[in-house]
Simulated assay, not measured.
Amino acid sequence: MLLAITYTLKTFWEIALFTIVIILCAWLFSRLVRFMITKIIKRRIQKAGGDYSTTSLKFLMNSIKFFSMIIALVVVVLSVPALRSKATFIFSGAGILAAIIGFAAQAAISNLIAGAFIVIFKPFRVGDFIRLDESRVGIVQDITLRHTVINNFENKRLIIPNSIISTESVLNHTIDDSQVLSFNNFYIGIYADVDIARKIIQEEVSKLDYIIDNPNSKISSDKNDVEVRFISSQNYRIHLRAYIWISEPFEEFRNRALLAERVHKRFITEGIDMPVDIYKIVK
């Protein structure tokens, strides 16, 4: 049947129509297979009373779509005489050409293998809040065959190749335990009353949401038990640090900003001496 098709595919429009039909069939087949697999997995997991891995399922769906398009491309090449003859010439050529093709595909293959390792070993999953460095931080939105998509807090998508992110040191805020310890630094004047400043910080912390006690002990409703340590004293300021446990890592940055503003206003209102660089006021 394939030979009968090849003899009829001679004009440009015949080849174009055949290519469109094959690609459409591959797309429909991919959609149908992905829909059926999703239904089967969800039904089995629900019967077992558990939950399915969104990361593994998305990676499987992307793999089916990718290989369906590859098969469609192979069918088109083998069915069109002009393309088949060129493909035969290319693959029957010298080993140098094969080496060039292999070198060009090296990055794609490494991304594919790295993506499979990410799905298998799960250093992070879809929906996790991760940090690579100060500029690359956000929520994992998708893991494809080639890259990982991270949605940062500016609602921008970071597209990072799997081969790169798999070799990075990743700080995962949500894997296993979503509770995080937030360091909040405050500076007061060298002659300020440390006890009053500590009390102000603790009172403002108690007004925040998602605040919990140290999870190493039982989590209680007492939000006033916040540890504020005296870190250091320099020639013009005192450094205080509040250690605050937060139950929701996505709220850490908002809470830190809100606490800094509220504590600053309370310091000014209640007359807490603020640090002044003495080197700048010498006459």
Rank of each mutant, 00 (worst) to 15 (best):
N155R: 11
D225W: 00
I139P: 09
S247F: 00
E203W: 01
K280A: 06
N216C: 00
S56K: 15
H147E: 14
I219S: 10
I196F: 04
T144P: 09
V33L: 14
R125H: 01
E204V: 05
D195C: 00
D277V: 01
L181I: 08
A82H: 04
A94E: 10
L97H: 04
L2A: 11
S178E: 12
V75R: 02
E168R: 10
I211Y: 03
D176T: 11
E251K: 15
F91L: 13
T8Y: 11
R34N: 15
I281C: 02
A87K: 03
G50E: 11
R237F: 09
F250Q: 13
F250V: 06
D133I: 02
S217L: 13
V21M: 12
I244V: 15
Y52S: 14
E14H: 10
D51C: 00
I160D: 06
T174G: 05
P123R: 06
K218W: 01
S68W: 01
V137P: 02
I5F: 05
L32I: 00
N151Y: 00
F117R: 12
N155I: 01
Y210Q: 04
I5T: 11
C25A: 15
E252N: 12
G95H: 05
F124C: 03
S220D: 13
K199V: 04
R131N: 04
N152V: 10
F91V: 12
C25T: 12
E14G: 09
W245V: 03
S92G: 14
A260W: 01
I20F: 12
F267W: 04
A107R: 13
